[in-house]
Amino acid sequence: MGLAEEMSAARSGSGHAGRLLGEFRRTALLVPLSEGEGGGFMSGWQGGVRWIYAFTDEEALTRFAVARGAGACEWEYLSILGARLVDAVIPMVDGPTGVAVDVADRDGSMLFPPVVGIVPDAYAVDAEPDRAEAV
Rank of each mutant, 00 (worst) to 15 (best):
V125R: 08
G2C: 10
D130S: 14
V119M: 05
L30N: 03
S34D: 11
D130F: 14
A100G: 05
R19Q: 12
A88G: 00
A70V: 06
G47I: 11
A104K: 04
G38W: 04
R50L: 12
P113F: 09
A4T: 12
E59A: 15
W51L: 11
L30P: 13
R63W: 05
S43G: 10
I118Q: 07
S8P: 00
G95S: 03
Y123T: 05
R19V: 11
V115C: 11
G40E: 05
I90M: 09
L20C: 06
L20Q: 02
D126E: 06
E37Q: 11
E133H: 02
W75R: 09
E128A: 15
R68G: 05
G98T: 07
A54F: 00
S43A: 15
S12F: 01
T62F: 03
M42C: 12
A4R: 10
G117Q: 11
I52R: 05
G82K: 06
R68F: 00
A28C: 07
H16Y: 06
R131E: 09
L20H: 02
P113Y: 07
M7Y: 01
Q46E: 15
R25D: 02
D105L: 14
R50P: 10
D126C: 08
Q46L: 13
V66N: 03
V99G: 05
V89Y: 05
Q46G: 01
A28G: 08
L111H: 07
G40R: 02
G36K: 03
R11E: 09
A28D: 06
A100C: 15
Y53R: 11
C73G: 00
L21M: 14
A134K: 14
A4Y: 02
E74L: 15
V119E: 02
A60P: 12
F112I: 08
R26M: 10
S8V: 08
Q46H: 12
A72F: 07
G36P: 14
A124C: 09
G39Y: 08
C73H: 06
L78N: 02
A83E: 12
G48S: 13
R50F: 08
